[in-house]
Amino acid sequence: MATCGWARAVRGLLLDVSGVLYDSGADGGVPIAGSAEAVRRIKASGLKLQLCTNETQATRENFVRKLRALGFDISVAEVTAPAPAACRLLKERGLRPHLLVHDDLVPEFAEVDKTNPNCVVLGDAAENFTYANLNEAFRLLIGMEKPVLISLGKGRYYKETDGLKLDVGAYMKALEYACDVQAEVVGKPAKKFLESALAELGVPAEQAIMIGDDIVSDVGGAQQCGMRALQVRTGKYRPSDENHPEVKPDAYVNNLAEAVDIILQHL
């Protein structure tokens, strides 16, 4: 443990969810071995805990229900997710969205005026990423004097139980290219989003560690906010991540359980 300087002076943990706590899938997903126990140990230790996810395939309530069913002791307040943050942004700026999102996310936007849309909100729409739906979003954007595209995260891909899947970022890039616009990202690795998660965690950046499986969104995003960040070798992790040209985590751990072991030993 002599080389675990990164584990000192920690008061709170920010955890990515998919690929760290569980591997998602059409069947509801499966927990990653040791992760439920690791969450319990974090809470028992007195460390603060906040989940920071780019999950946009479900409302936070349903997402938490799913996590609880998988054995995770988590409440809605402990989850920071893009959709509620996007709703705040839409209200602040008087934007009326056309939604290209997963059916199960739509209730998050119940309170938002969606008539005569003046922006497009893109989430991980999965099966809703049809040519017709993408074309509809494209035509709205290309018809706007100043197209506004808001993307809930910009992840490249993630892992489900039956394999890797394209994430919202690929479709965000497709629409950016088609309309020659730059999307505004609400979700990791956007600094504003990670800072809001940090505020909910309630500890300063230098006393927080982010743990995730995405080298860019989780590790890179957290480090830009002044946090330490670990990459787990679960979820979408690929060995080539360890040669990433721009992002280097403060450490690699095999899984969340190992990270928690080391952190608790340094308390």
Partner: peptide, 26 residues
């Protein structure tokens, strides 16, 4: 190509889908 024109309006070309795949796979 970014898009092409059909009688009922503009339609996405192959470019956006190629770009999405390029981004996802680096």
């Amino acid at each position: 190509a970014r898009y092409f024109k059909k009688k009922d309006g503009l339609c996405l070309g192959p470019g956006p889908f190629v770009t999405g795949l390029e981004y996802a796979t680096d």
